[in-house]
């Protein structure tokens, strides 16, 4: 990962100020997956960066790839998601998606399917109301693309098929049969909606509601906490403020 500056397209996952005028940003690019980059003079140079380096902005950037911290030469906002920025619940959900991407994706590994998922979620949030159902749709598809897909057709321990009575969520965020473990119950209906979410490719098609939404949430929250290795700050924020 070294060479001349190259044009990349990506989404800003996080950005923080460094020194007087610089910023360090984390980007999820189509071409190279997640990369960290140093943007020299980003807070001063409106010409080279404008307002492009804001969290969840979709940008086109000129990046000089290096092992570790890349150099971001310039960036231009392709879409700043004004619809998201004008609604607090949307901001929180968009930031959560970015934080999840930052914690769960490997550095320097292209994942175009995940880029498309993240980008579609931001587009969806920009035009539609933020709902927990859509967040769950994003989460289950994220786990699937990143290789952490929970087994939905049978017990993760013994392989037995789940019947109409459903399953339980283990402490490791897996679905197990009631004979293999203890935990919060998850009905067959919720498992079926999770499977359907993986089959449908569009936001807004699958709707989790009521008890099924709560049960799917228990599984997805524990699976994400298990694979991310920590509780995500933005998720805590969403919970505390009930967005």
């Amino acid at each position: 990962m070294r060479g001349n500056p190259e044009k990349v397209r990506g989404i800003v996952l996080s950005a923080f100020d460094y020194g007087e005028s610089d910023r360090i940003v984390s980007l999820f690019t189509i071409e190279h997956g997640r990369v960290k980059a140093f943007a020299r003079g980003a807070r001063k140079s409106r010409r080279r960066f404008g307002h492009a380096l804001e969290v969840f902005s979709r940008i086109e950037a000129e990046l000089r790839l290096k092992v570790g911290l890349c150099n971001l030469q310039e960036a231009m906002a392709d879409k700043t998601f004004i619809g998201i920025r004008s609604d607090l619940a949307k901001i929180c959900n968009a930031m959560y998606a970015c934080e999840a991407a930052e914690c769960m994706t490997p550095e320097g590994h292209p994942l175009p399917r995940f880029y498309r998922l993240l980008s579609s979620y931001l587009d969806h949030l920009d035009s539609e109301a933020a709902t927990e159902s859509d967040r769950r749709f994003f989460e289950v598809n994220m786990l699937n693309i990143l290789g952490y897909r929970p087994r939905l057709d049978g017990c993760a321990c013994c392989g037995a098929k789940f019947g109409a009575s459903g399953a339980v969520v283990s402490a490791r965020g897996e679905l197990v049969c009631k004979g293999c473990g203890e935990g919060r119950s998850i009905d067959a209906g919720a498992i079926s909606l999770l499977s359907e979410s993986l089959a449908k490719g569009r936001f807004g098609v699958v709707r989790f509601a009521g008890e099924e939404l709560m049960q799917a949430g228990v599984l997805l929250d524990s699976a994400i906490a298990e694979h991310a290795g920590k509780r995500l700050k933005s998720l805590e924020f969403i919970r505390q403020n009930r967005f």
């Binding site: 901001i91 700050k233 933005s234 924020f237 403020n241």
Partner: peptide, 8 residues
Amino acid sequence: SPLAGTGP
């Protein structure tokens, strides 16, 4: 800042 965990 939801990302930094700064709440109300």
